[in-house]
């Protein structure tokens, strides 16, 4: 582990978390921490539990065992005296407000204009006025370079544009942690760059914590403070990008990186 992980104020902490789908163990007593402001990329073969980590954090998947902490508070549990009880919906709502998620399939609301996609939740959930939400929405669209698309519907946009709206929509809720679940995997190759550029801009914001699952290895190397290689529901190896990409220690990591970086060999 690098130095950053030794400051004991992780914003995200997985403590022996187990997740099963039927008989299949997706996360196998996973221990995992992310520090405030840290940009962490999770890499690994498909089925290694990468996306599940993000989905558990976004409360889209329940856990079977262990405890997940966000900002020091248990996510899926509530403190009851000295013990932990399953979280109420109210608790989950409160915890969820710290997190934003960008989906592989964008998941924009197809019946809402781009701007409405960005204002719906701030108005309904945060209680922001419509005017204020629109103003903030336009600022975010400017950040992702889409001010001229505000009145269009998602299907009128390219995939890359849709995903940039997806990022802006998540940011509109002012999360402390941004989760990116393979944000460019559904895009045509020529549209990947514009989305990565937006994420790169975000990565420069120091107080935003970012957790990214991606197959874009070069990008991961550029933006990440730390790379975690997942294999069979555990972290097989983790460290600074230059260490992982140039001098991986584990055989599994070597084999995986070789396969994704030089697919033609």
């Amino acid at each position: 582990m690098n130095d950053a992980t030794k400051t004991r104020d992780p914003i995200i902490k997985f403590d022996k978390v187990v997740k099963r789908f039927g008989d299949h163990v997706v996360l196998d007593e996973l221990d995992f921490e992310v520090q405030r402001g840290e940009k962490v990329t999770i890499i690994g073969p498909s089925g290694s539990g990468k996306s599940t980590v993000l989905r558990i954090l976004m409360t889209l998947e329940e856990i079977n065992d262990g405890v997940v902490y966000v900002g020091g508070e248990p996510l899926w549990h509530q403190r009851k005296g000295d013990s932990l009880a399953p979280a109420s919906e109210q608790h989950l709502r409160q915890m969820r407000s710290q997190l934003g998620m960008v989906f592989q399939q964008f998941n924009l609301f197809p019946h809402m204009t781009v701007l409405r996609n960005l204002t719906e939740a701030p108005v309904q959930v945060l209680g922001v006025s419509k005017a204020e939400a629109r103003k903030r929405g336009m600022e975010l669209l400017e950040m992702v370079g889409l001010t001229d698309q505000a009145g269009k519907y998602p299907h009128q946009l390219s995939g890359g544009q849709q995903q940039r709206v997806g990022i802006a929509r998540a940011l509109a809720m002012r999360p402390k942690v941004m989760l990116f679940d393979e944000p460019t995997s559904a895009l045509d190759p020529e549209l990947v760059g514009e989305v990565l550029n937006v994420i790169r801009t975000l990565a420069d914001e120091h107080d935003l914590t970012m957790l990214l699952v991606t197959h874009e290895m070069h990008f991961a190397r550029q933006v990440s403070d730390r790379i975690c290689f997942f294999d069979q529901g555990r972290i097989k190896e983790q460290g600074k990008p230059e260490d992982i990409f140039t001098a991986p220690k584990e055989e599994r990591t070597k084999a995986f990186l070789k396969a994704v970086l030089d697919p033609d060999d």
Binding site: M58, L60, R93, M101, N107, E120, V125, A170, M173
Partner: peptide
């Protein structure tokens, strides 16, 4: 899922 992630009731 998107609605849940955005905390919509």
């Amino acid at each position: 899922e998107a609605a849940r992630a955005l905390n919509l009731a």
